[in-house]
Write a protein that binds this DNA or RNA. Sequence first.
DNA 1: GCCGTGACTCGCA
DNA 2: CTGCGAGCCACGG
Length: 111
Amino acid sequence: MDHESAVLELVDLIPSGRATTYGRIAAALGSGGPRQVAAVLARSGGAVTWWRVVRADGTLPPALTDRARPHWLAEGTPRTERGLDLSQALWDPCLDLSPAELSAALDGMAP
DNA sequence: GCCGTGACTCGCA
DNA sequence: CTGCGAGCCACGG
């Protein structure tokens, strides 16, 4: 299990209609930082549900917001004008994921 | 193995 | 409210 796969796997576990941030994922992994999560998603090229991962303020760069909006609408994700309403949509792996699921996704990455 | 890069974050002006 | 700067660290060259 490497860091990259763990990121992709964790992103894949985000429930429909919810979202999390680059930072929360990084925190759940216990290693790397937000930029690494972003780098992995960028490289994955749409092979995962990347639209459920947003910045700490609930927005994405404009180009990505345009592509993500249809998904948010289809999934009923709580939105604001600029992006997502994280006070309602936020899904934190550490809190909303069962320990078993979390450890399965990390597969021994976090201490 | 060193080096530039970036879909980030946070504090401060 | 907006903007800037420094810290961040795995990935690919």
